[in-house]
Amino acid sequence: MTAGVFAALGAGLVAIGAALGIGKIGSSAMEGIARQPEAGGKIQTAMIIAAALIEGVSLFAVLVTLLAVQAG
């Protein structure tokens, strides 16, 4: 039970971190596109890649919390 609570807390922290990261990427990308609409395609690709990397890290963290729940 305790493990579950802590894992849920951990997942929440992961969500905060990932949201901050992806939010920063999104805002910067939009700024970039607004400033240079002709570079929109390139910025979009780079944005998705960066977001995917952050997502990857957060998914690893989620995996760890999942394992923590199972470990008891």
């Binding site: 990857g56 998914l59 690893f60 989620v62």
Partner: peptide
């Protein structure tokens, strides 16, 4: 590995 986890988890 991240490819695997990303798709699975999403």
């Amino acid at each position: 590995f991240s490819l695997m986890v990303r798709l699975f988890a999403n």
